[in-house]
Structures are given as structure tokens and as C-alpha cells.
Amino acid sequence: MEMKETHPIDDLIRTDRIPHIWCSGCGIGIAVHCFLNAIRKSGIPPKNFAVVSGIGCSGRVAGYVKLDSFHTTHGRPIPFAVGLKLANDRLKVVVFSGDGDLIAIGGNHFIHAARRNVDITVICVNNFNYGMTGGQAAPTTPVRARTSTTPYGNFEFPFNLAYLAAGSGAVYVSRWTTLHAKQLEDSMLEALGKKGFTFVEAISPCPTLYNRMNKLGTALDFMKFCKEHSVIRHGADPKTANIDLRGDIVVGRFVNVERPTFTDFLEEGLAQGLPHRKALLDEERKEFEHE
């Protein structure tokens, strides 16, 4: 058919790899589209971005965006991103990955990067299970939910990612479902424009595994559910912002505060303790700007 036809977002995706591997109705593609639109609106040149993903369905994002991107080992996109940011703080470093990757195996990195307020943006697609490996339970799987490793229902309470991020020190925390494409895009734009550890959670359907095993219907049914059962509560206490897939999903921008970043303290310390190193750093920066 008309294979030569192009899409307005094509200059930011690796079209030779499209169609992507995500299942029909999977929300990851929507989150990627929102992210790329946000990049465009931010006015920051795409060459200044670095995108880091881990393992899993959402971990594939790094392979589809036409930006400097890195597909790292399981759970490690955040330490990789922190390294990038420390080596070159002019980069806009974004971690784009899934709940299994970022919060299970990478959970420690997540809380400590937030605690240090490292200047990175973390976008987490939350679909309540490990998609790529066959629908196993994750730390985000709701209690009693069925997954391939919890055939009698999950016995564990899940993390509330927004609460976890806020409690660990993130300066920006928001949550939207993939149905809220416009709000999700605006939220990503806000997060990208803010200094410090910013966190955006995108609730996504996983029709192939989680939704099927829990009789939540098709991807379209899940999107309709999001339409009917999302409650927008900006500024809500993340502790009370629950996700109930049989009740309501609380969405909105929960946290937006200012706090000195890791880099701020680093520079202050360097200027006082190691002024010659600070001078070197400033010089390197100038070079980067001239590139």
C-alpha cells in the first residue's frame, strides 16, 4: 500500500523499525507519541536529549526514538542516566521505562535518584505487570489480581508510584492514563522544563496479558474505563491518590515544588573545596555550548 506516506512525528522516530513490536492497543506507543510531541513543543533541540530505557516492553522505547538513546540492562536506566547527567549536565536526560524495570529491579535506584534530586525526568509506563516476559506479578500489581505468577490472586500490596516518588523527594509528580494524551503531553512538557527529579506516570493497558488475565476486556474497554473512572485531582496528596481498576483512578499533577538539585550542591561544594576542578568543569561546558 502507500508505504511512502509519512507521519508528522516521523522525524523523531526510527521509521525503519516501524511498525513497532507492541501489541495492538498497547498504550506504550501513545506515551511515546506524547513524549515526542512534548520534545517538539519544548523548543529544546532534539540533539540535546538523551533517552535511557531498561528492559521490558517499555524498554524498547530507546530503540524507536530518533534521539541519542540507550537500551541498558534490567533495572539500570536510572544509574546510567545519572552518569550521563553528571558527565554532561547540558544534556536533557530522560529515563523512559516500565514499572517492572524501574520499580522492581530498579527500585533502589529510583528512590535514591529522587532523594538526591538528580536533574533527570523519569517517565514510567505502568501496566501493572511484567509484559515482555509473560505477565508476571510486579510491585505494581494490585492485590488479588491474577498474573501468570499469581494464579490464585496477588497476595501483596502494590506500590503507589506517585506516593513513592513524592516521598523519596521528587520535585514534580504527575499521573495520567494513556487516554489523557493531551494532559500527558502537557505534563511531560512541564517535567522536561523543570530542574530536578521529575516523575510522570502513564497508566497503560496491557491487553495481551494483564487485562486479559484479569478479565478487564480489550484495550478499548480499558480506555473507556479510563474515560469513565478517572478522577482529576490536581494537588492531591499522593498518599490518597489511589489506582483502583474496579473503582476510580486518581490522576493529575500531585507535586510541583522547588528544591536544590544534586548538581547545585555539587557545584557549590566544588567551588568551595576544589576551585580548580570547578574551573575545569566550566571550561568543558563552554566547549559543549560552542559545539
Partner: peptide, 14 residues
């Protein structure tokens, strides 16, 4: 909105 909600970059308006 169709473009924004499409997970596959398959539709847009103009």
C-alpha cells in the same frame, strides 16, 4: 485527537 491517541503513529489530520 485521533493522532494523539493512536499507539502506532498511523493517523493524523491536516
Amino acid at each position: 485527537f485521533c493522532a494523539m491517541i493512536c499507539p502506532d503513529f498511523a493517523i493524523y489530520s491536516g
